[in-house]
Design a binder for these strands. Structure first.
Length: 882
RNA sequence: GCGGGCGUGGUGGAAUGGUAGACACACAGGACUUAAAAUCCUGAGGGGGUAUCCCCGUGCGGGUUCGAGUCCCGCCGCCCGCACCA
């Protein structure tokens, strides 16, 4: 590109004022119903959704980032001529509302609805292209009655069960938690150490779908690999053998057999003990007559399940005095221990230990002096000298010391053992049975809380548990509840639970447990397809919209919400509410918003708003805004109230405008990574906004002043500018489709730079350049529209374009302008760039070679020698090897 | 321990095996201004040479290749997830 002279005149344009323009355009979109979507639109559908917010009171920067990304996708596909569904709702049930009720004497419903109203205003101030006519809140009977209806459908379809089981009890929130909600032995919300309690609970039979949920992960190719791996691990499939060990008769126990599960039946000849879980029924039976064992069991229970506890825990056991017969070594027996590392929840709660090939078993065997017999010889090891020391051997190899298995591979041995036991029985049970085990447990959904969807069940002493007849739905939460004491307000409500049995009419009791809030969020995306229907969905409509094409949210939901939703969608399919298995075709997990932390000399956290940063060269110093005392700049952390490093979106929107906040959230950092919120970054985004406005104003000014009336054909500069503009459209399109917003932003900057440079001389240049400038600016505004929609509308209007830029079709790209007729080829000598030549595109290699060898630099570097080899990659690069 | 990801200027980050550092932030110099802000122009990976130029450079060590930030092998470091799962 030529170097242009300084701009030829100044424009006295006013600054762009987002505070004035943003509300104005929001009103225009609203009145034009721009983003209201119709089901009967023939265009191709596109469903984009961001994870809906919990109405905590105010939106935070994480929301801004999340919804900015979704909005770009929505607006882009709209411009691409698709019928785009982009709805918003509220995940409105949950504990914080009850906590607020307890702390502030405000009803959870009032608190929640007030928060929704405030947050809706905040979201609206962002200018999101959302169809607000589809808004739903999970706490309203209009929503949860359908969830209750589906609960009954699931119950009838055998997808719900009620069973007594050991559950995770959160002593602070006074409720049961699902396994997925226990993190490191603590409640996911309260952080309290979780206790085990026996309770009768309602369960969704998610484990019925374990295999399908696992296998279908392979079809979710538009999901992050990380999330798929996490779900795969959570489902935790393992294939193995259920084995019966015959108990050697004694006066110690009545049991005649012990059942274990193993994934390594091949190592059976290396077995040297059997171990029971402290929670195993046989353990309990034995402990009844053995105080020392009872004490050992109690000690195991105290051990805890926290990460550190497990890492440090020593393998400990208690010998029961019982022996079992070795299943493949006649006359040999194995001692039976109770061991602290055997889990009742997995397999059968009992194992056989093969110390040579399992680290835990080895640690245990060394401690209790049990035999360590290697039975797998690793490939390449010497059979004569091979021995197991402190590390168990887990790699594959060849069977040794294993009777009829000797010489087989591990896999072959597994099959041979299974075949060996196939026809045999112990204690009337098959001695060995091939079995697939999953770690995934059924989903316990009963919560002993008020602010959730009531489980539509009536307990009748005569008839048992009876579903509430659908005509009686919804089971509405009573309003008059108290929160002045712990426990479930529904349970102590004076009248609510007292009902008559719908079958026999006798006095009966309503179920007072409510559903886990994760049930609410497991199908809201389906409800959005028919938010006002009097059935959970309208299947034909749901099937037209589903699956969600692009779902965007935080990775913290990788297991909980995303796995539950996959299950729930399958259950809805089984009961005829939707026709798809998978709810989310594409998933994107965005990174967090971080900020520097600040601490006062007293060691207290200080909010960014109270800190002044002084820069001296590259040094930065922080001072307190009011007191002037020095502030320590700390590490960069996720924005959180506890560290006070939060920036309020309202303040940013109020001072810089929503477009600036949106733009900054999309710039720089790749969307899957964390982004650091900085004042400088926001300033930069704001400056860019003004820069665009200046460019547009100048372009308009130049057009007015231009005396040109005849359209001339493009000169080189005009053509170059058109190329840049078309290329930008092409690249930005690809980047948005690939969700590479940071790169799209960079492309837009480049186009802007080129246009600003060009505008400086357009007034005195040939008319073709003015035309290219005008066209380029219009394209720029369109590229900008998904990201800075208010600014784009303002510019669009100023440029005299008709209609809204939000309704304008995405600009077309002339493919001819994407290709260069000339290419610059770098010339490498031994892989290092030494020169370059400009040749016509498609120049033959031989011609390129000739040109290269005639270059002064190359002649000099060859120093009279002939090159060993010349590699010419047409239109790309040349490498001369000397 | 297992699984996944990452490591590039002062900073955030670009780079279908083909000119490393696009774009932005921060910084420096200059123009404009009474001044400041804003704006515009210029510079910049490190080292050396007053121009043109040379050497080094993507965590470390090897390898494949005409050519490696990118692919392979072995290390080091950081982040995330799961975890006594038999």
């Amino acid at each position: 590109m030529a170097v242009y002279p300084l701009r030829t005149y100044q424009v006295s344009g006013e600054r762009y004022n987002p505070r004035e323009m943003e509300p104005r355009w929001q009103k225009v979109w609203d009145e034009a119903k721009s983003f209201v979507v119709r089901d009967d639109d023939a265009r191709e559908k596109y469903y984009v959704l961001e994870m809906f917010p919990y109405p905590s009171g105010r939106i935070h920067m994480g929301h801004v980032r999340n919804y900015s990304m979704g909005d770009v996708v929505a607006r882009y596909h709209r411009a691409r001529g698709k019928n785009v569904l982009h709805p918003m709702g509220w995940d409105a049930f949950g504990m914080p509302a009850e906590n607020a009720a307890m702390e502030r004497k405000v009803h959870p419903g009032a608190w929640t609805r007030q928060n929704i109203s405030a947050m809706k205003d905040q979201l609206k101030s962002m200018g999101l292209a959302i169809d607000w006519t589809r808004e739903i809140a999970t706490c309203e009977p209009e929503y949860y009655q359908h969830q209750q209806a589906m609960f009954i459908d699931f119950l009838e379809a055998g997808l719900v069960t009620r069973k007594k089981s050991k559950v995770n009890w959160d002593p602070v929130d006074m409720t049961v938690l699902a396994n997925e909600q226990v993190i490191d032995g603590r409640g996911w919300r309260s952080g309290a150490l979780v206790e085990q309690r026996e309770l009768t609970q309602w369960f969704f039979k998610i484990s019925d779908f374990a295999e399908d949920l696992l296998e279908a992960l392979d079809t979710l190719t538009d999901w992050p690999e990380k999330v798929r791996v996490m779900q795969r691990n959570w489902i935790g499939k393992s294939e193995g053998l259920r084995l019966q060990f015959e108990v050697v008769p004694s006066d110690k126990a009545d049991a005649s057999s012990i059942e274990v599960f193993t994934t390594r039946p091949d190592t059976i000849f290396g077995a040297s003990f059997v171990a029971l879980s402290p929670d195993h029924p046989l353990t309990t039976e034995l402990a009844a007559n053995d105080p020392a064992l009872a004490e050992f069991v109690a000690e195991c229970r105290r051990q805890g399940t926290a990460t550190e506890a497990i890492e440090k825990a020593e393998k400990k056991g208690y010998f029961t005095q019982i022996h079992v017969k070795h299943p493949v070594k006649p006359d040999a027996t194995l001692p039976v221990y109770v061991a602290n590392f055997v889990l009742m929840e997995y397999g059968t709660g009992a194992i056989f230990g093969c110390p040579a090939h399992d680290q835990r078993d080895l640690d245990f065997a060394r401690k209790y002096d049990l035999p360590v017999v290697p039975v797998v010889l690793p490939t390449g090891a010497d059979a004569a000298t091979f021995a197991v020391a402190d590390e168990a051997v887990v790699e594959p190899g060849t069977m040794i010391n294993s009777g009829f298995l000797d010489g087989l591979s591990v896999d072959a041995a597994k099959q041979a053992v299974a075949a060996q036991f196939a026809g045999l029985t112990v204690d009337g049970k098959p001695q060995g049975k091939v079995e697939v085990n999953y770690r995934l447990r059924d989903w316990g959904i009963s919560r002993q809380r008020y602010w959730g969807a009531p489980i539509p069940i009536i307990h009748c002493e005569v008839c048992g548990t009876i579903p509430v007849p659908k005509k009686d739905l919804p089971v509405v939460l009573p309003e008059d509840v108290t929160f002045d004491q712990p426990g479930n307000p529904l349970d102590r409500h004076p009248t609510w639970k007292h009902v008559h049995c719908p079958q026999c009419g006798a006095s009966a009791r309503r179920e007072t447990d409510t559903m886990d809030t994760f049930v609410d969020s497991s199908w809201y995306f389906s409800r959005f397809t028919a938010p006002h229907a009097d059935t959970p969905t309208i299947p034909a409509v749901a099937n037209a919209w589903l699956p969600v094409d692009q779902y965007i949210g935080g990775v913290e939901h990788a297991i909980l919400h995303l796995l539950y939703s996959r299950f729930f969608t399958r259950a809805m399919k089984a009961t005829g509410h939707v026709g798809v298995d998978e709810p989310f075709k594409g998933l994107f997990t965005q990174g967090m918003v971080t900020h520097e932390t600040y601490k006062s000399p007293a060691g207290e956290w200080v909010a960014p708003a109270e800190v002044v940063i002084e820069t001296l060269g590259e040094d930065r110093k922080a001072l307190h805004l009011h007191s002037g005392e020095p502030i320590t700049i700390g590490s960069i952390e996720k924005m959180s109230k506890s560290k006070k490093n939060v920036v309020d979106p309202d303040e940013i929107v109020g001072s810089y405008g929503a477009d600036t906040a949106r733009w900054f959230m999309l710039s720089d950092s790749p969307p899957e990574r964390d982004v650091q919120w900085t004042e400088a970054g926001v300033e930069g985004a704001s400056r860019f906004q003004q820069r665009i406005w200046r460019l547009v104003s100048e372009t308009i000014e130049i057009t007015k002043q231009s005396a040109h009336s005849v359209r001339e054909s493009d000169d080189d500069e005009a053509k170059a500018l058109r190329k840049i503009a078309h290329r930008a459209v092409h690249n930005v399109s690809q980047d948005i489709e690939g969700l590479r917003f940071n790169r799209a932003v960079a492309q837009i900057y480049e186009l802007t730079n080129a246009l600003v440079r060009s505008s400086g001389i357009a007034a005195v240049a040939p008319s073709s350049r003015l035309s290219a400038l005008e066209d380029g600016v219009a394209r720029l505004i369109q590229l900008l529209a998904p990201m800075m929609p208010h600014l784009a509308e303002t510019c669009w209007e100023a440029l005299g374009k008709s209609g809204l830029v939000a309704d304008a079709p995405w600009p077309e790209v002339d493919p001819a302008l994407l290709v260069d007729d000339q290419v610059t080829m770098p010339i490498q000598v031994n892989g290092k760039r030494r020169a370059e030549i400009v040749v016509a595109k498609g120049t033959a290699s031989a011609e390129v070679e000739r040109l290269v060898l005639s270059l002064d630099e190359i002649v000099r570097m060859l120093d009279g020698n002939a090159p060993k080899k010349i590699v010419v990659v047409p239109d790309r690069i040349v490498n001369v090897v000397v």
